[in-house]
């Protein structure tokens, strides 16, 4: 009796550790697949819809989840030729390009100054910059509406070039401060002995060494500008100045009959550039984002 009870227990300790682990792995895969399905449903469904004609979409006897039997390119053709979508795309690209350039020109020297040169009050200032990142756009858009209006920039995408840095500059500075602080002190001492100015030190030593951080900050600025929604919704109301996100929501989703195939095509094209950037540079971005969380 006693021996019989002990036997299975010993087996549990002996050979089954590996089997346990295999079970845990299988369970992990199972649940991960479930989560992946949840996470990928909307983009998948957008893709499926984008290839269908309006007639096929409104035919409720066919499975909406399956790809089209006769994939059509009419959605993208109509989007490209008969709507203002190309203008939105161009405006978004232009605004994003300008703001990313402005952001990096402001954030990199500032991070070098606050994180590395340490002048009177620089510590408090760095904290203050981080705090301003926590002030959301949905709190600032009304006063900024007045300010943009008084500058005569209302309904112009240059207003977006002016205000988007509020979304990007604080956090990019914060990321760069972290990277700059992780560079060994000996490097800038060596540069100082060789007679380098602070500007040379920044451009010849700090920027090349902190390149991964620079890439992370650039990706962050790019994504935020590309996806910004509140400001264009508030400041832009004519089609020739509109950007992609607000333009798709306000002009394409309108009318008695939604052209879902076309709308989903627009959403997918709008999502493509950030997805492509992530596909190639995801590791840099995640490292930049999480380095703050794990080491400080």
């Amino acid at each position: 009796m006693n021996a019989a009870a002990e036997l299975p227990q010993r087996r549990l300790f002996g050979g089954s550790l590996r089997r346990n682990r295999r079970w845990a792995l299988a369970a992990s895969y199972f649940f991960l697949v479930l989560f992946a399905i949840f996470f990928l449903i909307p983009p998948y469904y957008q893709l499926v819809t984008a290839t269908k004609s309006s007639a096929e979409i409104s035919n409720q006897t066919t499975d909406p989840w399956l790809p089209s039997f006769a994939p059509t390119s009419e959605n993208i053709e109509e989007l490209w030729n008969k709507t203002d979508f190309p203008i939105y795309l161009r405006n978004t690209a232009l605004v994003t390009l300008c703001v990313v350039a402005i952001t990096m020109t402001i954030a990199v020297p500032a991070a070098f100054s606050l994180g590395r040169m340490k002048f009177w009050g620089s510590g408090i200032l760095a904290t203050g910059v981080f705090l301003t990142y926590l002030v959301p756009d949905s709190l600032l858009f009304l006063p900024l509406f007045k300010i943009v209006g008084s500058l005569g920039l209302l309904n112009s995408y240059w207003a977006l070039v002016l205000v988007y840095p509020t979304l990007t500059v604080p956090f990019c500075t914060w990321i760069m401060i972290g990277y700059f602080q992780s560079i060994p002190k000996e490097l800038d001492e060596a540069a100082l002995i060789d007679g380098a100015s602070h500007l040379q030190m920044l451009s010849k030593i700090f920027i090349p060494v902190a390149l991964p951080g620079l890439i992370a900050a650039t990706i962050f600025a790019f994504t935020v500008c590309w996806a910004a929604f509140v400001y264009p919704m508030a400041f832009i109301f004519s089609s020739d100045q509109q950007v992609l996100t607000a333009g798709t929501i306000t002009t394409l989703v309108k009318g008695d009959v939604y052209q879902w195939g076309m709308i989903m095509t627009a959403a997918l094209i709008g999502a493509a550039p950030p997805l492509v950037v992530y596909a190639f540079l995801m590791d840099y971005y995640i490292a930049g984002l999480t380095s703050g969380a794990t080491k400080g």
Partner: peptide
Amino acid sequence: RKWRGMLLIPWVIPLSLSTLGWFWL
């Protein structure tokens, strides 16, 4: 890495555009 990349997709797509997908769903 592959799984992380796949699970990250919702966070990469501009929120207003992915919400449009949900709206249609």
